[in-house]
Measured scan of single mutants.
Amino acid sequence: HNGKLCKLKGIAPLQLGKCNITGWLLGNPECDSLLPARSWSYIVETPNSENGACYPGDLIDYEELREQLSSVSSLERFEIFPKESSWPNHTFNGVTVSCSHRGKSSFYRNLLWLTKKGDSYPKLTNSYVNNKGKEVLVLWGVHHPSSSDEQQSLYSNGNAYVSVASSNYNRRFTPEIAARPKVRDQHGRMNYYWTLLEPGDTIIFEATGNLIAPWYAFALSRGFESGIITSNASMHECNTKCQTPQGAINSNLPFQNIHPVTIGECPKYVRSTKLRMVTGLRNIPSIQYRGLFGAIAGFIEGGWTGMIDGWYGYHHQNEQGSGYAADQKSTQNAINGITNKVNSVIEKMNTQFTAVGKEFNNLEKRMENLNKKVDDGFLDIWTYNAELLVLLENERTLDFHDLNVKNLYEKVKSQLKNNAKEIGNGCFEFYHKCDNECMESVRNGTYDYPKYSEESKLNREKIDGVKLESMGVYQILAIYSTVASSLVLLVSLGAISFWMCSNGSLQCRICI
C-alpha cells in the first residue's frame, strides 16, 4: 500500500475532517465546509473527530445509520420544511452556546429548535410527501429539559409530546424532565432520530412541544462500492481501485494482509504473511546465498510486491572476458508455465471484495464479540484455502523447474562428451581453451567436438587428477538461474548478450 488516501476510480472521497457522521448530518456549525458535499467514492472519518452533536445527546440507531450510509455515493440536500413558512405559530430561531460559531450562539444547520411564540405553543402538524424518486433521509430531535421551569419557559406545556409517523415508522416521544450533570454547559439533553422515507411515502410530524424540527433532508443515491473508513492518512493526487484505512492498494494479487476493511475492488484479506509461490528452483544453499535460486511470486499485497520470474541462460568467462545470454527457448517455456500457473491461482482465488467494518453500540458488546468470532472463522478458512492451494502448486513448480534445468544440462553434456569433466555440482571442467566463438557454439548447439578432442585428450593426460582450476583450465557451469522482474525479464530476452569482463582471468566458464 502507499499510505495515502486516493480517488477511487477517479472519484474523490468525502473527508469529514474534524467532524464525524453525526456532526455532518445534523449540521454542526463547525462542519459548515461539508454542506456543499454532493457525491463521493467513500467517506473518511478520523479516529478522534471532535465535532459531532454540539448540544449533548445521542443519535439513536447511529450504527444502523452508518451502515445505511456505507452504500450511499451521492445525496441532494434540500429544504424539507421551509423555515419561514412551515411554522407560522412558533418561534424557530432557537440557539445555544453549546453550538457556538465564530463566538456567537448558533444551532444545527439542518434542524430548527421550535419554541413557544408569545406565551403559547399551539399543537403543530406538518407533513412531507417524498417526490424525489429515491429514498429521503429525514432527521429530527426531541429536547429533554433539566427542570419543569425550563419546560414551561420554552414550550408552555408541561405534558408535551412529539409524534412522527410514516408508512414504515411510527413513534411517540415524551420529554424526560430530570436533573443531569452539566455537559457542554447544558443540564438538558437532546436525542436525535432518523428514518428513511421511501419514494411516494408521507411523513407526518405532530407536537405540542420539545420538537427539534427537520429543516433540511437528504435524497440518497446508492453506490455499492462506497463505504466509510476511519483513517488518519492524508489525501493525495492519486487514483486506485482499492482503498484501505492504511493506504491505497493497486494490485491484481488475490490476497492482502494490510487491513480487513477495504473499499472498492480489493484482494481478499488473509492473516498469512508467507503466502508465496515459487518460480525458481529448489533451494541450493551456495546459490541461494548469491540470490540466484528460489525466486518467488508473492500473492499477498503487503507481504511480497508483485511476481518475480526466474529465467535460464548461459554465463561464460574466458580470456576475452565474461558474458550472459538467455536461453530463449527454455526461458519462454518457463515463463509460459509460470504465467499459466499464476493465472490459474488468481482465477481460482481472485474475487474482488469490498469489506466494511460493522458498528455496534456499547450495549451490543456481546453481539460485536460474536460477530468478530464469526469473521475470524471465515478469515481462517480463507487463509487455509489460500495456503493449501499455493503449497500444492509450489511442489509442481519445483518439479517443473528441475526438468527444465536438467534438459539444459543434458544438452551441454551431450555436446562436450569427454572434452570436459562433470564435477558433480552442476559444473563441467573443460580440457581445452574455449574462446567466445567456442562458447557461442555450446550455447547454440553447434559445438565442434572433433575440433577440440585432441587438445582435450592431451590435457587429460597431463592433469592426472590435479585440480583443474589450479592448472588454468576452464570450467563450464551447467545450471544457472538469475532473477529478474517481469519487465526486466522481457528486456533481457530482447538482448543477445551483455558482457562482464574479468581482467586477466584465465578461467573459461559457460553457465546455464
Rank of each mutant, 00 (worst) to 15 (best):
V374S: 07
V345R: 00
G472L: 02
K462Y: 12
G426V: 02
N232I: 13
N503K: 07
N418Y: 12
N444P: 00
K462C: 00
T446P: 01
M235L: 15
G298I: 04
R396D: 13
S344P: 01
I284F: 08
Q243T: 04
G337M: 07
S234A: 13
N503Y: 15
R366L: 09
P254I: 09
V390L: 12
N369A: 13
G357R: 15
M349G: 01
R509K: 13
I338P: 03
N407M: 11
E429M: 08
D309R: 05
V412D: 06
G337L: 13
Y449C: 06
P450E: 14
A297K: 09
G424Q: 08
Q243D: 08
N239E: 12
Y474D: 05
N459I: 15
Y269T: 03
R276I: 03
P450Y: 06
G310W: 11
F299E: 05
I263D: 10
E455T: 07
E395V: 10
Y449R: 10
K413P: 07
K411E: 14
V491N: 01
I335N: 04
Y452N: 10
V390Q: 12
S231I: 07
T354P: 12
E469A: 13
T383G: 10
S231A: 13
K406P: 14
G313Y: 15
T331W: 02
R396P: 05
E410V: 05
W304N: 03
K268F: 06
I300F: 05
T331V: 06
I510P: 01
V356A: 15
K417D: 12
N419W: 05
H236W: 02
N407V: 07
K373C: 04
R282K: 13
N336P: 00
N232M: 04
N425S: 08
V412N: 08
A297I: 05
K329L: 10
N336F: 09
V491W: 14
L506R: 01
A325I: 13
N394H: 08
R271T: 12
G280A: 06
E454D: 08
M307N: 03
G337A: 12
T446M: 11
T383Q: 14
I423P: 00
N252R: 12
G465Q: 15
